[in-house]
């Protein structure tokens, strides 16, 4: 092995590490960043999980207040009977879902570029 070989190996390994790290960091930033609110199965709004805000939903079924804070979503207020939607707590991962059945309301997080398994 010559000196050139070691330099080459070093450069290639550093480059590949940079690629992997950038994907790793970017993956964490972009993963599961969109909150979708749907009533009767129709999306009525999409919001970023990064921005803290409160979204009131008022329609013929009733009142809900959806709260986005610290990268998590939860139902803050609801005038439905069971309050199950509030009990479902906070969600933050792609594919997670809160449902308020009496109000035909769904709040879910659209997954990022999640790869569960890859079959070769």
């Amino acid at each position: 092995m010559k000196k050139n070989d070691y330099i080459l190996i070093g450069i290639l390994l550093i480059l590949s590490l940079a690629v992997s790290l950038s994907v790793f960091l970017k993956g964490h930033a972009s993963e599961a960043s969109v909150v979708v609110i749907a009533v009767d199965g129709n999306a009525v709004g999409t919001y970023s999980l990064r921005e803290d805000r409160e979204i009131p939903i008022d329609n013929e079924y009733g009142h809900n207040l959806i709260v986005i804070s610290d990268g998590k979503v939860f139902i803050g207020e609801s005038d439905c009977d069971g309050r199950d939607c509030i009990a479902m707590g906070r969600i933050s991962k792609g594919g997670d879902r809160i449902v308020c059945l009496p109000h035909r309301l769904e709040v879910y997080i659209k997954g990022g570029d999640g790869v569960d398994t890859v079959a070769y």
Binding site: I9, L12, L13, S16, L17, V19, S20, L21, V23, F24, G27, G112, D113, G114, V115, V118, Y120
Partner: peptide, 23 residues
């Protein structure tokens, strides 16, 4: 090639381990 076939960017995270193995 896998990235194109699967059209998944996340798979690129395997770059470093695969390069170590290739080495």
């Amino acid at each position: 090639c896998a990235r194109i076939i699967l059209s998944s960017y996340g798979i690129m995270i395997y770059m470093f381990p695969l390069c170590v193995v290739g080495c």
